[in-house]
Design a protein around this nucleic acid. Sequence first.
DNA 1: ATGAAAGCGCTAACAA
DNA 2: TTGTTAGCGCTTTCAT
Lengths: 326, 326
Amino acid sequence: MADVAREAAVSKTTASDALRGHGRVSGATRDAVEAAALRLGYSPNRNARSLRTSVTETVALHIPEVLTSAEYYMSFVFGVTEQATRAGLNVTMISSGHLPHRGALPQVDGLVLCDPMAGDPVVEALMNSGLPVVTAERYVGDKESTGVVCSDHETTTVELLDHLRDMGAVRPALLASDSTAERAATVLDTYRRWCVRNGLPDTVHKAPFGSPPEVPRAEVARMLAGSPETDAVVCAADGAAVTVLPEIRAAGRTVGKDLLLASCVDSTTMRLSDPPITAIDLRPRDMGAECARLLCDILSGRSPRGTVRSLPITLNTRASTGLPRP
Amino acid sequence: MADVAREAAVSKTTASDALRGHGRVSGATRDAVEAAALRLGYSPNRNARSLRTSVTETVALHIPEVLTSAEYYMSFVFGVTEQATRAGLNVTMISSGHLPHRGALPQVDGLVLCDPMAGDPVVEALMNSGLPVVTAERYVGDKESTGVVCSDHETTTVELLDHLRDMGAVRPALLASDSTAERAATVLDTYRRWCVRNGLPDTVHKAPFGSPPEVPRAEVARMLAGSPETDAVVCAADGAAVTVLPEIRAAGRTVGKDLLLASCVDSTTMRLSDPPITAIDLRPRDMGAECARLLCDILSGRSPRGTVRSLPITLNTRASTGLPRP
DNA sequence: ATGAAAGCGCTAACAA
DNA sequence: TTGTTAGCGCTTTCAT
């Protein structure tokens, strides 16, 4: 930077201001400085800048370690990373297992928490860090997050249930997830209310969160044996819908004919399953990007704390719930 | 830090040395300083440290944006992150799309590249950054990486092909990936040599890298129609094996009976498919952790540049290639 | 075994 | 509009 200043025959301050577009400098000097910087291949030392400004230009990202929804989370990571990079921010991963040594949080300007689960000690520590936090989906603990990007699961779940009814289902059952993330609760509530509104009994089986994928299979087998009138199954847990296919077949049912099947989380697997499974596209990449964007906006003061943004999601109907919509 | 020094009644220098375990200080003073730091909840300012030492304690991580192997990559990310955190390093994600502004690389001590593809401009820029680079699997471009963690795909592929032969297959075909990552080439070579050694003709169909998952399906349909004598299919591309199941059934074949099916990449999907699919477990989390460990070792001088470490991988035999091994 | 002082590269405050 | 000075928090000489 001193070199750039000398090359452009100005002071360090002027060079600094010129490169950051600080309105102080005249057009001519700015061009001169920029040319000099380019010639010397200068790029600023982020550590020095951070030390001086106490702005790290870095955000931390926490992802729950759940491999059954790897596609969702990986897409989310790509979304956050690309958007943050665009905005000139670095993205630091936070280990889902343990916080760094001495309980010291990473030195960042803000946090993005994906599907924060109340009760997760790392999540709680991050929520209580005092740093601005944007969560993908609401955090249901005591602490309020600084910003939220959430989707309207209620509307889409109703849409899904209506679709099942329209396709002839009269006894839809729910294979619920009992994650403490918000989405799980919304789906369950919505399902129960929908049943009441439609004058139907509800059938709910739960697969404990983080249980191995064999568990939902067993649950569905039990469900079909115990409630044989079931003619549609909605799987809330990511990825579960595909894994229960064999049990459904083993019970003598045919998916898309005498048993409709749908998933609350879409993925390549759902699309390519046999038959393809009706699912809700949560648009994880856009979700990640929107979280990064909101965090930037909050950090720069463009958006106020407490901002809630909404990300549209859509139902993809496929053969597992009858013929795809035309 | 000045506060800690005052609290412990020593100089800043002594406090600094004490906290880093620099052998200068006596045991008593060190304890005093540590107690003081604990009392004050002190944690060092990484930026100031980095500015002074020009060590960032940060590594960057690059992941190819391929959603068909999201489970592999997400596990890899978790492995890297956890191991790096253990070693006191931060992990910064590098956007797979574009490099940061001004072409400036992130300011880090080293890089981890997962499955680096020759020809990818971001990968090439990173390889040429001059920073220490550890790659998961060899980089096949001109540049040499500083360290490599790789697996013995040749041996395991032979083991897989032998297994198919043992289970009765006489005409195994390969659905190859034409990624420029090393593994793709190794699998193809190994398959061809194995065919020669066993006096069998080879049948290879390719799915262009990054092609939508519908492509391998179509390839398999073509394969079964064009080479009906095929009695086993090995899928190199991640996730392809599951997606081709419907085509195989449509061709009137039964997986595990008159057509054996195997994947070169294991995943939850393979394990839970119907039937479960024989696959090679690449142990992505361990791979990530080992990459981080090797990079640490190289950065700290514990391992020399050019170190190559090997990660064992294993074949999981399942019903798709006949009965599981007892 | 400890302390004092200099300085990493940058930017905010103040002066001109 | 530009320059000068000080200092962010730490570690590393160098001196004691």
